[in-house]
Amino acid sequence: MVVIGVDRSALSELSKMSAASQAERAVLEEEFNWLLKEEVHAVLKQLQDILKEASRRFSVPTPGMEGQLKQENFILGSSTMDQVKGVLTLQGDALTQADINIKVAKSTQVMHFTFREDKQWKLQQIQDARNHVNQALQLLSSRDESYHFKTGAEVNKLMDAVMMQLTRARNRLTTPASMTLPELASTGLMRMFTPPMPGDVMVNLYINLSKLCLTVYQLHVLQPNTTKNFKPAGSSVMHNPGAMFEVNNTKFEVSHVHKVECVVPWLNDTLVFFTISLQLCQQLKDKISVFSSFWNYRPF
């Protein structure tokens, strides 16, 4: 029989290492439980406070209280280009008044348009962004301070859902809808003005980041003998001169494009709030991942 000797000093070292590992694990587990119980709720409270401020910027009047919401006038134009000038009145998510002057290309003629008194133009981008912020707030309020998170995965799932809403809100403001020129020609916006827009002028109003933008297209009709190279333009936020399209069997080409814009300060505020909130969510997820790397066998 061969007797294998046991190195008692090695066993002692292994025992110490195991005890140290268990002690470290106990400390980490205590820290993680504190994170789930205290820090997660502190972050949720901070997120709620920030997003309530963002939601307040998007405030809309309750029925019968429309006069309570402040009207803001924005002057669109530039000192270097006077082909298009305008004043737009924004109230919450709606343009309630517009006063636009367009100087016709290669002419001294100035066309003047205003919104009809019975019309206002809803900015869908602002409506959608506000809705996403409110959905994020609902997600956060569903886990009040008495709620006990049991796993990191549960926290991550909530953070992912909140981040998805905030990313969608931000994208609605930073990415205006692409439209074809026939789609633009058929929007209700073209029927908002008095006097009516002539057939050779089209306008578009949208939000881009924190700016309220007005784009004016001047058109000319393509004669039948010049349409052999006709190539309809696709979807775009802004079309360039030379873009072609067809409406009611008439072919047009864009001859001139003018864009004027103005910063809306409270939209800039909301974009900052979105950035800060997304960073807070990601930082919390990063802390969770630090603990999960120690216990990769445990569902975090």
Rank of each mutant, 00 (worst) to 15 (best):
V84K: 03
L95K: 03
I50G: 06
R168E: 09
D82Y: 14
I75F: 15
L184F: 11
A169S: 00
K85H: 11
K70L: 07
T174R: 05
M192R: 01
A94W: 12
Q279N: 11
A136V: 04
D93W: 11
E253S: 07
C213Q: 12
F300N: 09
I100F: 02
L189Y: 08
Q223A: 11
A20W: 08
L69E: 04
G5V: 12
K45L: 15
L214G: 09
D200P: 05
I207F: 05
M238S: 13
H239M: 07
K157H: 13
P265W: 04
W121C: 02
R170C: 06
H220F: 11
I207G: 01
A169T: 01
L284F: 02
G234T: 04
W34M: 13
K85L: 07
T114R: 09
W295S: 07
M197K: 04
H148A: 15
E53G: 14
N240A: 15
Q283W: 07
T96C: 00
N248V: 15
R191A: 10
A129K: 04
M163F: 14
S79M: 07
N296D: 09
V264F: 00
L166R: 01
T151Y: 08
L219S: 05
T114N: 03
K103N: 04
P198M: 02
K103L: 08
V237C: 01
I75G: 04
N73Y: 14
V254C: 01
V263M: 09
S78R: 02
Q125S: 14
K70C: 11
N208T: 14
M238C: 13
L90W: 05
K52F: 10
V257T: 11
F300C: 11
P299L: 04
V263N: 10
G77D: 04
T96G: 02
D144L: 04
G199K: 13
R56N: 11
L137C: 09
T270W: 07
S9L: 13
L35H: 02
V6P: 06
S18Q: 09
R25K: 12
A94N: 14
H220Y: 09
G92I: 02
L173A: 02
E66V: 01
D93K: 08
N171H: 06
E39V: 12
G5I: 09
G188P: 08
E24C: 07
D49I: 11
Y217H: 00
Y297N: 12
E66M: 01
L205R: 02
Q109I: 13
T194D: 09
L184M: 11
N268D: 07
V263L: 10
M238H: 02
K251H: 00
V203E: 05
G199E: 09
Q91H: 03
L158F: 10
P195R: 03
A42I: 15
W266Q: 14
F273N: 06
P265E: 06
V110R: 09
R8F: 15
T270M: 10
A19D: 07
N73T: 13
F32G: 02
V2F: 12
V247I: 13
T194F: 12
T114G: 08
Q124Y: 10
R56G: 13
T226F: 08
C281M: 00
K103P: 10
G67I: 08
E117C: 14
K103Q: 07
D49Q: 14
Q68H: 12
F291T: 06
P182S: 01
E154Q: 00
M65R: 12
A185C: 08
F245W: 09
D7M: 11
L51G: 00
F74Y: 05
